[in-house]
Nucleic acid binder design. Structure first.
Length: 356
DNA sequence: CAGCCGTGGAA
DNA sequence: TTTCCAAGGCT
């Protein structure tokens, strides 16, 4: 472990690099501008949870154009926000985003809390996001620890305890190098470094502004830090999805229950997803299965969804809650990726069917 | 507290 | 092709 004297040098080296090389990102105030808008900082941090910058940018642009303030977002319809989030994943974030916006708009007159503790009480705001918003939007000294910080700090100090047991040591080390001022810039500088130079697989140590501060660069394999515990194998599951199409060009869509996988999202009616799911259709009809199931990989299991198609009469009413959605606007339904792919597969096959 | 919760890009 | 990974939070 490093001694006190070097910790200040690390922040100075990194901030000096950041002042010249900071990435220009839509949620960052331009250099020399006033402090960033807390609404935009918070929105970006939530979107960036376990999500890459490249994936977030178009969603951030869309959200801030459509809902430019926390009050505007708080007044939005749930269905519109969920549909706008479709494709970004981890949909509990979108549900918590709305709950948080409404809490801030309705109970706090639109003002975000300006301390870590206050922010931490908001839905969808955990230890990381509270620290990041406190530091970036409000200039607080906060110790911001995300996956980038874990990697950079584990390398700087050559911490060889496997994750997640290394977390306390990593946090203490991160605390030791976090400066009293510019903690927000410092946090973003570490994340820029982690994203562009101190990357997970092939760190560019030769151009790293911290190479003279780093313990791992002196080892045979700097990329070996942080050490991680072995991960589990991903189980495979099967499922059935039901495409019910009306002759006037509508398909029957349902909304999934608020909790659990793809919670709150529009979807095709479908079975549970397990080793041997119930193949019983939701209604009697002439069912025909697509030749190839839709394969999709979630974080903790992979899925093969067999899509069954039925063409029903105009006055047909499937059981349960749902809505007839126009095929011409299927792209606006806000389907999560699994069901968007299922819809693509059905439309592609029916197009081929029409032109043999 | 370990498991649950998406997605797409990189290697 | 498969594996790994990303500005985590909730229960």
């Amino acid at each position: 472990m490093r001694v006190e004297g070097n910790t200040k040098k690390i922040a100075e080296d990194l901030l000096g690099h950041y002042d010249v090389r900071a990435r220009r990102l839509p949620w960052r105030a331009p250099p020399g501008a006033n402090a960033a808008d807390p609404y935009r900082v918070w929105l970006s941090e939530v979107m960036l949870q376990q999500t890459t910058v490249a994936a977030v940018i178009p969603y951030f642009t869309k959200f801030t154009e459509r809902w430019p303030s926390v009050e505007a977002l708080a007044a939005a319809d749930d269905a519109d926000v969920m549909a706008a989030w479709a494709g970004l994943g981890y949909y509990a974030r979108a549900r918590n985003l709305l709950a948080c916006a409404r809490a801030v708009a309705n109970e706090r007159d639109g003002a975000f809390p300006d301390t870590e503790d206050g922010l931490r009480d908001l839905p969808g705001v955990g230890a990381y996001t509270a620290a990041a918003v406190a530091a970036i939007a409000f200039g607080r000294r906060a110790v911001v620890v995300d996956a980038n910080v874990e990697r950079v700090v584990a390398r700087l100090f050559a911490i060889d305890i496997p994750l997640p047991n290394a977390r306390p040591a990593i946090r203490a080390a991160a605390d030791s190098i976090t400066p009293e001022t510019r903690a927000g810039d410092f946090a973003q500088a570490v994340m820029d470094l982690g994203a562009t130079i101190c990357t997970a697989r092939a760190p560019a140590c030769g151009i790293c502004p911290l190479r003279t501060d780093c313990a791992a660069v002196l080892t045979a394999d700097p990329a070996a830090f942080p050490v991680k515990a072995a991960k589990k194998i991903r189980p495979h599951r099967l499922g059935h999805g039901w495409w019910i199409e009306r002759p006037d060009g509508h398909v029957w869509l349902v909304r999934r229950s608020a909790k659990g996988l793809l919670g709150g999202m529009r979807a095709l009616p479908s079975s549970d997803w397990e080793a041997a799911p119930d193949p019983t259709p939701p209604m009697t009809a002439q069912w025909r299965a697509l030749a190839a199931p839709v394969a999709h990989i979630f974080t903790h299991f992979s899925l093969a969804l067999t899509v069954h198609v039925a063409h029903v009469t105009e006055n047909c009413q499937p059981p349960g809650e749902g809505e007839w959605w126009p095929l011409a606007r299927i792209g606006d339904a806000g389907l999560p990726t699994l069901f968007r792919r299922a819809a693509d597969a059905v439309m592609k096959e029916s197009a081929q069917h029409a032109r043999p």
